[in-house]
């Protein structure tokens, strides 16, 4: 199975610059398929980011977020070698998680 997420964290100006790309259809529930039937709603609704065990970002998402969402954020106080984890849960209960180590 293909890797469903990518993450990268790099120190920049005393903060970790984190970039996350998630592979997800983010169906709004309003799109029709080739046959003209509505595609059921299916989107990532909750995203958390954890820095060395502490939650630093907790987001509630909606249909307004695009397919294959890109998330960028900065963690102040992080150092090279720290661990960053990003988790998501979607409307069908599917989950994703990825972690990385902050590089200098």
């Amino acid at each position: 199975m293909a890797e469903p997420m990518r993450i990268r964290a790099k120190m920049e100006n005393n903060a970790a610059d984190v970039k996350v790309l998630m592979s997800h259809p983010m169906e709004t529930g309003q799109r029709k398929n080739e046959k003209g039937d509505l595609v059921p709603v299916h989107f990532i609704q909750s995203v958390t980011a954890i820095h060395n065990g502490k939650t630093v970002l907790d987001a509630q998402w909606s249909q307004a977020i695009s397919r294959n969402p890109f998330l960028g954020f900065r963690v102040r106080g992080a150092k090279a070698g720290d661990k960053i984890t990003v988790n998501w849960v979607d409307t069908q209960g599917d989950k994703g998680s990825i972690d990385t180590t902050v590089v200098a």
Partner: peptide, 17 residues
């Protein structure tokens, strides 16, 4: 060519498999 910027890299993984 940054895999965290370009979602087409998910397709590259699919191609590799």
């Amino acid at each position: 060519l940054d895999a965290t910027d370009n979602p087409a890299f998910f397709a590259l993984d699919r191609g590799k498999s």
